[in-house]
């Protein structure tokens, strides 16, 4: 924890909103994107991420300076996202343990019309689209771990602190998450044969 961070935290504890905004400024984008990836739509992502920040502000005086502030912060954010998901269960999940849902409409739901764009841009967009879809198809547990590891770049240790699980669990979840993704991506590619991913 940097000295500056510590100062900002202390001021936030006293109710200084400006200090708090500075404190979370670097993390706002991450928080929003985590929520976006987990909840899959921008409105929910905005609501939940802001809710998380308000909650962090409300309970900042319970922060005991013993753990890392960012870990503590992201724990609240991720937990709030998980709670939100559990409240409004979105059934669009895929897991090696579950039967595959073949619903053409859903797979294609975020595909944009790209017939007028140059091929390489189209390719890149297509790739991105495929990856988006693939992640969205993961079930919540694996999706969250992939988000934290591959998008947010948290270390295993940090992930274990945020999700409050053991490092062994982190490892196994990452492995399964990536394995699932591999399978999903293979399927996606089979459906879009002109992509060479």
């Amino acid at each position: 924890m940097t000295l500056n961070e510590r100062k900002l935290i202390k001021r936030s504890m006293k109710g200084d909103i400006d200090a708090f905004e500075k404190l979370i400024e670097a993390h706002q984008k991450s928080a929003y994107n985590i929520a976006l990836r987990m909840l899959k739509n921008p409105e929910d992502a905005k609501d939940v991420s802001q809710q998380a920040f308000v909650k962090i502000f409300k309970y900042i005086d319970t922060f005991n300076f013993k753990s890392s502030f960012t870990t503590w912060m992201y724990r609240i954010i991720v937990n709030l996202c998980i709670d939100y998901i559990n409240k409004n269960k979105i059934n669009n999940t895929y897991s090696l343990d579950n039967p595959i849902k073949t619903d053409t409409g859903e797979i294609n739901r975020e595909v944009k019309d790209n017939t007028d764009l140059p091929e390489d841009i189209v390719e890149k967009k297509e790739t991105k689209q495929i990856v988006h879809n693939a992640i969205n198809k993961l079930d919540d547990i694996h999706r969250s771990i992939i988000i934290l590891r591959d998008i947010e770049d948290f270390s295993y240790k940090e992930i274990s602190e945020i999700l409050e699980i053991s490092i062994g669990t982190v490892k196994s979840r990452i492995k399964r998450g990536r394995d699932n993704l591999r399978v999903i991506l293979k399927e996606e590619m089979e459906q879009n044969p002109w992509n060479s991913v």
Binding site: I17, L36, K46, Q50, V54, R178, R182
Partner: peptide, 30 residues
């Protein structure tokens, strides 16, 4: 490959009014 393709995902930018609405929510909470 899987990992790399995921890594290439770019961040979505924050919605325009994000900071403003967050500020007002914080003030309400206070």
């Amino acid at each position: 490959k899987v990992m790399n393709s995921i890594r290439e995902i770019e961040y979505e930018p924050l919605p325009d009014d994000y900071k403003i609405t967050l500020r007002s929510k914080l003030e309400d909470e206070k």
